[in-house]
C-alpha cells in the first residue's frame, strides 16, 4: 500500500512536471476556443432562424408521433416483404421506435418536444451556456483521451524501450504495484484535466453565452424515456468519459504489451481517431458486437438511434466493454509480471 502511494505520487509528479503535457493542454484549450468562436459566428449569422429542437421542424409531439408511426409501419412492411435487408448497423427501426416513445412521453408529461436535446447534442447554433459546456466537454474529453493514450504509451512501452524501466524495477517495489501506480496516475491526471476543463467551460459559458440550458432526453433500447437537467447530463457524460479514459489507458498498455513504443502509440491513436471508419467496416462483418470501440461510446446507447449495432442496448455495450476491460487488464498484468527486461 505504501509502495503504491509512493509510486503513484511519483508518477503523477512525472506527468504533471512534463513540458509536453502542458503543451498538449494548451493546444486543447486553443482548439476549444476556436470551436467556440466558430459556433458563435455561425450562431450570429443564423440569428432569427429557427433551427431549434430535437426535430428541427417545430412540429408538436402529437403530429410527430403520427408521422413516426406511419414511417415505422412502412419500414416494417418492407422488411417483412424482403425489400429491405436489415444490416447490423441499420438503426432505422430503433430510431423510429425511440422517437415515438419520446413523443408519447412528452404528450403524457406535457413537455414541448422541441425543448429537448439528445445527450451529446446541442439544441441550436444559438447556444445556451448549458449547450456550450455540453459541447466543449465532448470536444475536450476526446482530446484528453488522446492525451492519456500518449502518456500511457510513453509510460509503459516507452519506458521499457528506453531502458528507464530497468532502474525502476530494481527498486523494492512489486511489478504489479508499479503498473497499477502508473495506470492510476494517468487516469487521475486525465480526470483532473477533464474537471479543470469543465470548470473553465462553465465559467466561459456563463460569461459568453446567454439563455437557460436545454433539458436532455435519454432513451434506451427498451423505449424507457427520461428527461434530465442539462448539468446532470454533463455529469453523466463525464462518467462515461471516465470509463472511456480507463479503457483507453488499459487498451494502450495492452497494445504496448506486444509491440514497441512506436506501435504502442500509433495503434491506439489510429484506432481511437478512426473508430467510426473501423466501426463501419465492422458493421457488415456480422460480428460488430464484439468490438471494443463500437461499444465504448455508451452515450450513443441513450440516444434515439440507440447502440451503433442493431439489437444491442447500452447495457450490452457496458457488458462487452467490461469483458474487454477485464481481459486486457489480465493480459497487461500477466505480461508485465513475466516480462524480461533486457
Amino acid at each position: 500500500m505504501k509502495g503504491f502511494v509512493t509510486a503513484f505520487s511519483l508518477e503523477s509528479k512525472k506527468i504533471f512536471s512534463s513540458k509536453g503535457f502542458w503543451i498538449f493542454i494548451v493546444a486543447i484549450l486553443v482548439l476549444c476556443l476556436m470551436v467556440t468562436l466558430s459556433f458563435k459566428m455561425i450562431g450570429d449569422l443564423m440569428e432569427g432562424m429557427d433551427d431549434s429542437g430535437l426535430t428541427g421542424s417545430g412540429a408538436d409531439a402529437g403530429q410527430l408521433v403520427e408521422v413516426y408511426r406511419q414511417q415505422l409501419d412502412e419500414y416494417l412492411q418492407q422488411v417483412e416483404s424482403g425489400q429491405i435487408k436489415q444490416k447490423p448497423g441499420d438503426t432505422t427501426e430503433m430510431t423510429l421506435r425511440n422517437s415515438i416513445a419520446i413523443c408519447e412521453y412528452c404528450i403524457e408529461h406535457g413537455i414541448d418536444v422541441n425543448s429537448l436535446v439528445a445527450i451529446g447534442s446541442i439544441s441550436s447554433f444559438n447556444m445556451t451556456s448549458g449547450d456550450f459546456v455540453n459541447m466543449m466537454s465532448q470536444v475536450s474529453f476526446t482530446f484528453v483521451c488522446i492525451l492519456a493514450i500518449v502518456i500511457s504509451a510513453r509510460t509503459l512501452a516507452g519506458e521499457i524501450d528506453d531502458g528507464t524501466m530497468r532502474m525502476q524495477l530494481t527498486r523494492p517495489i512489486k511489478r504489479y504495484v508499479l503498473l497499477l501506480a502508473k495506470q492510476g496516475a494517468v487516469f487521475v491526471a486525465g480526470l483532473t484535466v477533464a474537471v479543470a476543463f469543465m470548470a473553465a467551460f462553465m465559467a466561459g459559458g456563463a460569461l459568453f453565452f446567454e439563455g437557460t440550458a436545454t433539458d436532455v432526453v435519454l432513451v434506451d433500447a427498451y423505449q424507457n424515456v427520461a428527461v434530465i437537467n442539462p448539468y446532470a447530463a454533463i455529469l453523466l457524460t463525464f462518467l462515461f468519459f471516465a470509463v472511456e479514459l480507463a479503457t483507453m489507458i488499459q487498451f494502450t498498455m495492452f497494445i504496448g504489451s506486444f509491440v514497441n513504443k512506436t506501435g504502442a502509440l500509433a495503434i491506439p491513436l489510429v484506432t481511437y481517431l478512426f473508430v467510426d471508419t473501423i466501426a463501419l467496416l465492422l458493421y457488415n462483418t456480422g460480428l460488430p458486437w464484439i468490438g471494443l470501440f463500437t461499444n465504448l461510446n455508451w452515450a450513443s446507447g441513450l440516444t434515439t438511434a440507440g447502440a451503433p449495432v442493431r439489437g444491442m442496448s447500452i447495457y450490452t455495450m457496458m457488458a462487452v466493454t467490461a469483458v474487454w476491460f477485464a481481459g486486457m487488464t489480465a493480459v497487461n498484468y500477466t505480461v508485465f509480471e513475466k516480462r524480461d527486461l533486457k
Binding site: K2, T6, A7, L10, K14, M167, Q168, R171, P172, I173
Partner: peptide
C-alpha cells in the same frame, strides 16, 4: 526519483 521509489 529513484530514491523516492525505494522509500525516500
Amino acid at each position: 526519483y529513484l530514491a523516492d521509489l525505494q522509500g525516500g
